[in-house]
Amino acid sequence: MVTHPFHPLCGRELPVLFERRTRRGLWFVCEVDGQQRVTLRQEWTDRGAPAGEQRLSADGLTALREVADALLGRRDSATLVGE
């Protein structure tokens, strides 16, 4: 079953034709309505780890920006808004 919330086939059960493992993870090649094929990351299906139910809050994003700025050697992230 496709579980990725933004995938157009979310909620659909698709037959897996075969699996393909790459350095980026496990992928499933599935059949849609007996006519076309779609490739899905394992994480986008019920065979992968469940997706997080909560998105980052504004405070979480601000803290993440501060960490990124510190790693990049930037001092004042407020001056970078809108660049």
Rank of each mutant, 00 (worst) to 15 (best):
Met1Ser: 09
Val2Leu: 02
Thr3Val: 15
His4Gly: 04
Phe6Tyr: 08
His7Gln: 02
Leu9Cys: 03
Cys10Asn: 15
Gly11Leu: 10
Gly11Asp: 08
Arg12Asp: 02
Arg12Ala: 07
Glu13Thr: 14
Glu13Lys: 09
Leu14Phe: 01
Leu14Cys: 02
Val16Gly: 07
Val16Cys: 13
Leu17Gly: 07
Phe18Val: 07
Phe18Met: 13
Phe18Glu: 14
Glu19Pro: 01
Glu19Leu: 07
Arg20Gln: 14
Arg21Tyr: 09
Thr22Glu: 15
Arg23Thr: 15
Gly25His: 04
Leu26Thr: 12
Leu26His: 07
Trp27Lys: 06
Phe28Glu: 01
Val29Arg: 03
Cys30Pro: 03
Val32Ile: 03
Val32Cys: 01
Gly34Pro: 03
Gly34Asp: 09
Gln35Cys: 07
Arg37Gly: 01
Leu40Trp: 00
Arg41Asp: 02
Gln42Tyr: 06
Gln42Phe: 06
Gln42Lys: 11
Thr45Pro: 00
Asp46Ser: 09
Asp46Lys: 04
Gly48Ser: 04
Ala49His: 10
Ala51Arg: 12
Gly52His: 15
Gly52Trp: 08
Glu53His: 06
Leu56Tyr: 14
Leu56Phe: 13
Leu56His: 13
Leu56Ala: 13
Ser57Gln: 05
Ser57Val: 06
Ala58Cys: 05
Ala58Leu: 08
Gly60Trp: 04
Ala63His: 14
Arg65Cys: 12
Glu66Met: 12
Val67Gly: 09
Asp69Met: 13
Ala70Phe: 08
Ala70His: 11
Leu71Arg: 12
Leu71Lys: 09
Gly73Val: 07
Gly73Met: 05
Arg74Trp: 10
Arg74Lys: 13
Asp76Ala: 06
Asp76Trp: 04
Ala78Gln: 10
Leu80Arg: 13
Gly82Thr: 06
